[in-house]
Design a protein around this nucleic acid. Structure first.
Length: 642
DNA sequence: CCCTGTTAAC
């Protein structure tokens, strides 16, 4: 039964991630595709275009703006328009969200070579939500015009688009390449990149590097750069650093605006420092600034984190009266705070109120409550809410998927787990670190260790590093299930990740490898971690290897054991010699061992000696006698020192 | 004419 269940799951599971494993990341160094020169580019036609009466072109532009069949209008009047006019048309379509028109027009402009830097930056800006990162990269790489390629506006809009798509690392890589190709970054480039650090790992130190770089380039931080770095400080919980920048900008003569205040306020929220927050609000008011929706919502976050739940409720009421609570965010802040303070039922009351008031929601509230229920181990409630989400929303992202997966996993709803995975595939939502963690834990709880292992492999191949605890537990269970090489593979994932490993894990995997007779791997583990391996386990490894290990490695293992301070006993030598006697073609290895021994103070004991002599015809009597005689000579002085 | 900064969920 278990086995059957596992197979079904494995199929569904691999199906579920079909999409994500083939999603290729486009190279930023992709060679440009050459396009043949178009006839419209000739000087003659441009001259012709410019000589058209202005009124005719104006009507052509209007025809374009109103066109339903854009391509037919373009083929009629497109060539009469200037690049500037075409750009303004792009703008027009952009402002009215006519994305198909933008694409068609831009394609036509590319094909007819009627475009400039504004066209590129406009296009990318308007299409940022529709294009994916690899399309934008391709577009940029295929720009033939060198002056457009290192144009700061074009570069900024490309980088900005990548960052919006969450491809921060790609953006940074491209940024370095752009600089090499001649881009001179400006303050906008840096503000955008620094702002991009808000949501990335190690964002604060990455932002500092960028600040350093802009200063090295003799650029001076402006209001927006300060806004960006304050946001980075806030999202990394660095309120002291935030205060430093806040005061720094004031000293440089910049007056903070609501963006700066809200970021500093947000920096106080991590530690719930409501005293500093209240006094900041006073400062702000005395500067003549009026707290807006974001400021008050952030203040709510400070109160919630500071544990001032009564005051939080009052502030939410105030937000409602100011019509600042028309979307779910303030409710979410309060619910999450209550839930994290262990008051799930109070959180649910806020949720129900919110539903009763028909507050606009994108599903965050559901996600928060599902997670809150899971945290409180109220899996049935979590599951109900997840199902409720499925029926009322049609907007999914990886976070809500994770919340639902967690709920279904914990409630033991296998069918719903699979359905959610299929949905992720259908919508091409890539699993993230948490998705993998949730699934691996679930599969382990279901005793589906091989599936857990496959999931961890997938996780690892996507660049996510599982924590030691999970690896360690999976290693143990795989070992118990006789899946020795899988256990070793998990060990290696952990070993080559940047995570720390408890020293006892090396010994644990060694036992598993010995049980699986994976002696070569065991040797590698032993060699790399000999100092963490107990005497008992060393002995176990040594005799296992002598008995069944690769004969060509026996001498190496002997030397390693010796070099690690392990005293090799006579039994071990006898086992090695027996192996060599069984394979006379390895006589050189036996002779090598016998020659090595006296130098390290080892002697051949009488019974082994007899064994060798009995078989000396296999090796050459003369040679054996010589080697054994050297043993005897060195025996005495060495023996005294031992 | 084009590019930048603030609030919520695992």
């Amino acid at each position: 039964m278990k086995k059957k269940k596992m197979e079904i799951t494995a199929v569904a599971f691999s199906m579920a991630f079909r999409h994500s494993s083939i999603s290729a990341s486009a190279s930023i160094t992709e060679p440009p595709t050459p396009t043949p020169p178009s006839p419209s580019q000739t000087k003659k036609s441009i001259k012709f275009v410019n000589s058209k009466p202005f009124s005719a072109r104006k009507s052509a532009k209007l025809q374009l703006h109103r066109a339903s069949d854009l391509n037919s209008v373009l083929s009629k009047v497109g060539k009469t328009l200037t690049v500037k006019e075409l750009n303004s048309t792009l703008h027009h379509f952009g402002n009215s969200n006519k994305f198909n028109h933008i694409s068609q027009l831009f394609l036509w402009m590319q094909e007819n070579k009627k475009l400039d830097v504004y066209s590129y930056s406009n296009y990318i800006k308007f299409m940022a939500n529709k294009l994916d990162a690899s399309t934008v990269l391709k577009l940029y790489n295929n720009i033939q015009d060198e002056s457009a390629k290192d144009n700061v506006y074009v570069c900024n809009s490309v980088l900005s688009c990548l960052i919006k798509k969450g491809k921060f690392d790609t953006a940074i890589k491209l940024f370095h390449q752009m600089k090499q190709d001649g881009l001179v970054p400006d303050l906008v480039t840096y503000s955008m990149l620094i702002a991009g650090c808000v949501k990335v790992k190690d964002g604060y130190s990455k932002a500092l590097q960028l600040i350093q770089e802009l200063q090295d380039n003799k650029l001076r931080m402006d209001n927006v750069i300060y806004g960006a770095i304050l946001a980075v400080c806030a999202s990394n919980g660095k309120w002291e650093e935030a205060e430093h920048y806040f005061n720094g900008m004031k000293n440089e003569g910049h007056s903070p605006n609501v963006y700066h205040y809200s970021s500093l306020l947000n920096a106080y929220s991590a530690s719930g420092n409501f005293k500093k927050a209240d006094s900041l609000i006073q400062d702000m008011k005395s500067e003549g600034l009026v707290p807006n929706k974001v400021i008050l919502t952030t203040l709510l976050k400070v109160y919630v984190r500071g544990g001032l739940l009564e005051k939080s409720r009052e502030l939410l009421t105030k937000l409602e009266s100011l019509s600042y609570a028309e979307d779910e965010m303030p409710y979410c802040v309060l619910m999450d705070g209550l839930a994290k303070a262990g008051q799930v039922h109070e959180a649910k009351i806020v949720f129900d109120e919110m539903m009763k008031k028909h507050v606009r929601s994108d599903g965050y509230a559901h996600s928060i409550m599902i997670s809150a229920f899971c945290r409180a181990k109220l899996f049935e409630e979590a599951k109900q809410l997840a199902k409720n989400f499925q029926t009322t929303f049609n907007k999914y992202d990886v976070v809500i998927m994770n919340s639902m997966l967690c709920a279904f996993c914990r409630a033991g709803e296998m069918e719903s787990v699979m359905e959610t995975l299929r949905k992720m595939d259908e919508l091409a939502i890539s699993p993230d670190y948490n998705t993998f963690n949730i699934l691996i834990k679930y599969f382990c709880r279901q005793n589906m260790y091989l599936l857990a292992y496959q999931t961890m492999e997938d996780m690892h191949s996507k660049g996510y590093q599982p924590v030691e605890e999970l690896c360690s537990s999976l290693i143990y269970h795989l070992g118990q299930a006789n899946a020795y090489s899988e256990a070793f593979s998990v060990y290696n994932m952990l070993k080559y990740s940047k995570r720390t490993i408890r020293k006892t894990l090396h010994e644990k995997i060694l036992h598993i490898l010995l049980a699986g007779k994976l002696l070569k791997d065991a040797y590698v583990v032993f060699k790399d971690n000999a100092t963490f391996i107990s005497g008992h386990t060393t002995k176990k490894f040594a005799s296992a290897f002598m008995k069944l290990g690769n004969i060509n490695l026996i001498n190496d293992v002997m030397k390693t054991l010796h070099n690690c301070g392990y005293k090799i006993d006579q039994d071990l030598f006898e086992m090695a010699v027996t192996r060599y006697l069984g394979q006379p073609e390895k006589k050189d290895l036996l002779l090598h061992l016998l020659q090595w021994m006296p130098g390290q103070g080892y002697v051949v004991d009488p019974s082994t000696r007899n064994l060798i002599l009995k078989n000396s015809h296999l090796f050459g009597r003369q040679l054996i006698a010589e080697v054994l005689s050297k043993q005897r000579v060195s025996l005495k002085p060495k023996n005294l020192t031992r």
